[in-house]
Every structure is written in structure tokens, then in C-alpha cells.
């Protein structure tokens, strides 16, 4: 089985287990203020790290390429409160243009 299959199935099994456990455990277990706070911070940490790694690296090597333009355009779009699809598409289009120009 390839890593991609392991990841697909493993992620799905744990995702469901987490969802189901929320519906099954007593409320007080997960309502502790520290758990609530950590739950707000983890997505910020992971998603920011993912933005950085996906923009500035390829296979464990740091690099700067057309993706930095895409990131910049995405930031501008978000600053101007563009909806999510506009953010993603404007980022993709600008990056694609730079890639084709440099190729």
C-alpha cells in the first residue's frame, strides 16, 4: 500500500473517530477552558506553518519561485476582504503568469 493510501485511510479513520467521540463523551471532558484555548491556537499554528512550507520549499529544500507572487496576491486579496474563491483563483492566476513568463 502506498503512503498516499495509508494517509487517505488513516486520516479518514481518525477524523471520524474524533467527530464521533465529541458526540459521545461527557461535555465536561472537553469544556475545560485550557482545552478550548488550545483548540483555537492549534489551527492558527498549523495553517500558518503550512502556508510557509508550501510557498517556500520543495522536498525539504528552501526556494523562492513564482509561488511567492501567488502568496503576495492572496494576501492583498484578503486585506481587501475578497471572498475565498477570489483569493485562491487570483493567487493561482498570478503565479501561473509568472511561471510561464520565467519558463
Amino acid at each position: 500500500m502506498t503512503a498516499f493510501w495509508v494517509a487517505t485511510i488513516g486520516t479518514s479513520v481518525i477524523a471520524f473517530a474524533l467527530k464521533y467521540s465529541g458526540h459521545s463523551v461527557p461535555e465536561r471532558w472537553l469544556s475545560h477552558p485550557k482545552i478550548q484555548r488550545i483548540n483555537l491556537l492549534i489551527p492558527i499554528a498549523l495553517l500558518s506553518a503550512l502556508v510557509a512550507v508550501q510557498t517556500f520549499s520543495e522536498k525539504s529544500q528552501l526556494m523562492i519561485d513564482q509561488r511567492i507572487v501567488g502568496l503576495y496576491v492572496a494576501i492583498v486579496a484578503l486585506v481587501y476582504k475578497a471572498p475565498f474563491p477570489v483569493v485562491v483563483i487570483s493567487s493561482a492566476v498570478s503565479s501561473a503568469v509568472v511561471y510561464r513568463l520565467l519558463k
Binding site: L47, V51, Q54, T55, A74, V87, S91, S94
Partner: peptide
């Protein structure tokens, strides 16, 4: 990359965060 998909992924993460 010619369609900018390599940038769409980090842009999606950024939009989520």
C-alpha cells in the same frame, strides 16, 4: 505550475487561517 495550482494550495491555507 502552469495553471498556478502550486500557489492555490498555500493561498487556500491562508484563506482558512
Amino acid at each position: 505550475r502552469a495553471f498556478g495550482l502550486d500557489s492555490a494550495v498555500p493561498a487556500a491555507f491562508l484563506g482558512l487561517v
